[in-house]
Design a binder for these strands. Structure first.
Length: 274
DNA sequence: CCGACAACCTGTGAGC
DNA sequence: TGCTCACAGGTTGTCG
């Protein structure tokens, strides 16, 4: 569900409330999400959260204890979200799987589809898989037009699939990949190695604009995304192509096309995107 | 090494 | 109303 903007919105809501606080309790109501999570409470008990950062769509929780420290890495999958309660959380509902209690504050992970995940790391998670395999952060200054173009030139594969793979640049999922390609006027089926340097620059700018405007809007085009502070189900961003198959392109009026790439729906304007 | 595809789950909306 | 089917934001593992 959540792409980079939703994860960053989550991070920004949780960090001020929780960084510096110590874990006083945990509850796991399911034995596993995508992987076993039963051991998580053992790792967290009594540790202080000293940083909450993000890499791609992963949240990285740095915990420090008296004698040991480590990192909790969480991912929201397709349908997960964290909700923050400053006072004791209400009775758990059907899909409320994990609570992390920090004194009077509780963060609760809810996820109907259970594709979300959490894992404990004793070493910096960015140095080991799967995070070590991730591509550049979209807003990293080191990701210049030239670097981006050079990376795309090495891929003989549809550019939409390259964006989705996340090993060149992270953060744009299925919605924002389609939207970015529309904004850049690039056909999602075009092989990544056949995009000019100039148009690669345009695509990178489009990815940045798309993600940052979603972020500014408070994070979402997603039907059932819930922000940690309880502002639910927004529709603050009107998509230009995603989910609009058959509807007229907002630029030229041509019906928006829907195709499937690598098992995922892709939307584009056959006239505006070449 | 790469690409195609299944798997992991539940919920929702469309069509009958 | 109620059934069945297709499809949904992501990642990972397997097979050819």
């Amino acid at each position: 569900m959540p792409e980079l903007p939703e994860v960053e919105v989550t991070r920004r809501a949780l960090a001020p409330a929780l960084v510096g606080c110590t874990v006083t309790g945990t509850v796991c109501r399911v034995p596993r999400l995508r992987s076993e999570i039963g051991s998580i409470p053992n790792h967290l008990a009594g540790k202080r959260l000293t940083a909450l950062t993000r890499r791609g769509k992963y949240l990285i929780w740095r915990f420090e204890g008296e004698s040991d420290a480590g990192w909790l890495v969480t991912h929201l999958g397709m349908s997960g979200y964290w909700r923050l309660w400053e006072s004791p959380a209400p009775q758990p509902d059907k899909h409320d799987h994990v609570d992390l209690v920090f004194g009077s504050a509780t963060v609760r992970l809810t996820d109907p589809r259970r594709f979300s995940d959490m894992r404990w790391f004793d070493v910096d998670p960015c140095t080991v898989p799967p995070l070590s395999r991730l591509g550049s952060e979209p807003f990293a200054p080191a990701l210049t037009d030239e670097v981006f173009a050079a990376a795309l030139r090495r891929r003989r594969r549809a550019v939409k699939e390259v964006l989705m793979a996340g090993d060149v640049v992270v953060g744009a999922g299925n919605i924002y990949s389609s939207e970015s390609l529309f904004a850049a006027g690039i056909d999602p089926r075009r092989s990544a190695d056949r995009i000019s340097v100039k148009r690669c620059g345009k695509l990178l700018a489009a990815i940045r604009t798309t993600l940052s405007s979603a972020l500014e809007a408070g994070g979402t085009t997603l039907r059932d995304f819930h922000s940690p502070l309880g502002e639910d189900g927004w529709f603050s961003i009107a998509c230009n192509v995603y989910g609009r198959a058959g509807e007229p392109c907002r630029i030229c009026g041509t019906p928006i096309a829907r195709i499937v790439q690598n098992g995922r729906a892709t939307y584009y304007c056959p006239k505006c995107q070449k």
